[in-house]
């Protein structure tokens, strides 16, 4: 393989990995810090994408529209938490069923409002050439944003008082409450933060994928696999599995088809879980959260 070909392959690999991290982060925060399995996660991504689309249609610039989308999705997450999630605390099966219902409703509502036709947002920025290959500059955004958000999440959970309270509430809610932490409020904000991350994923992806009501289904299976295989240390785990599973998907996709790549991602995840049921980070340090 030539040098430019190798660069192209590497660039594509890093992009796939980063996108997987992007779509998994929100789920990882909500599952890792709240033990909530949000089956409507894909629809939160869809929500962010449609919010971006709506804002750009209203004349807002793309970058501004993305910021608006993140805020709106976080606010929507807040509402969902208050109306639905908090009533199902510590009932994981019911939480899954309720968020699944929410997911069906959201897809159909988006379909009724926007229709099922692909709405394009033109991909911004130009392209750059490496040897014989031409690459989109926007891919740099697709790569940069997830890692920035992961770093931000790490800072928030490890270096702020709020993050400390969140981790305390996640590890032992009763003890945290006994020490005076308002665990309900912490839980609500955590969920909203996770929703905001999902919204960011939708916003950043909006210019490169078809913004359609069912777009969440494309990502939800992959992001769940990344988070579950990641294990209890949610941030390190999700970063690690996004890298491993994203690499599998990218390499297989290049050799065969993207669909086979997706299937191999699932197969790899299931095989890993067969031997490490606690996930990649589960065997080493139990109880650690970040």
């Amino acid at each position: 393989m030539t040098a430019d070909g190798a660069f192209n392959a590497g660039f594509s690999l890093v992009t796939t990995v980063s996108v997987l991290l992007l779509v998994s982060l929100g789920l990882a925060v909500v599952f890792g810090l709240r033990r909530v399995i949000n089956l409507a996660h894909g629809e939160f991504i869809m929500f962010g994408a449609f919010a971006t689309l709506t804002a750009t249609r209203a004349g807002v610039g793309l970058w501004g529209a993305m910021l608006i989308a993140v805020t709106v999705t976080a606010a929507f997450g807040l509402v969902v938490e208050l109306a639905l999630i908090r009533h199902l605390y510590e009932r994981p099966a019911d939480t899954m069923l309720a968020t699944w219902g929410l997911s069906l409703v959201l897809v159909q509502l988006a379909d009724l409002v926007y229709g099922s036709v692909t709405e394009g947002i033109p991909t911004p920025l130009g392209s750059f050439g490496v040897g014989d290959y031409s690459m989109s500059e926007y891919n740099l955004v697709l790569i940069g944003v997830p890692w920035t958000l992961a770093g931000l999440t790490w800072l928030v959970t490890r270096r702020t008082r709020y993050g400390l309270l969140t981790r305390a509430a996640a590890q032992n809610p009763d003890m945290a409450a006994g020490l005076g932490v308002n665990t309900r409020r912490v839980a609500t904000w955590t969920f909203a933060y996770g929703a905001g991350l999902a919204g960011a994923a939708g916003a950043v992806l909006a210019p490169v994928v078809g913004v359609i009501p069912t777009m969440g289904q494309l990502y939800v299976a992959r992001s769940f696999m990344a988070v579950i295989v990641g294990g209890p240390a949610f941030l390190a785990g999700t970063v690690g599995t996004s890298t491993a599973l994203g690499a599998v998907e990218n390499l297989v996709s290049r050799s065969y088809t993207p669909v086979i790549g997706q299937a191999m991602l699932l197969v790899a995840a299931i095989v890993i879980l067969r031997f490490l049921p606690q996930g990649l980070t589960g065997g080493r340090r139990r109880g650690g959260l970040v």
């Binding site: 199902l88 069906l104 409703v105 959201l106």
Partner: peptide, 19 residues
């Protein structure tokens, strides 16, 4: 075209109302 909304709402309702 509203079937999914009915189904989804039913699911949420069962979980919240009938546990």
């Amino acid at each position: 075209d509203r079937e999914a909304i009915v189904v989804g709402a039913l699911l949420i309702g069962i979980v919240l109302g009938l546990r």
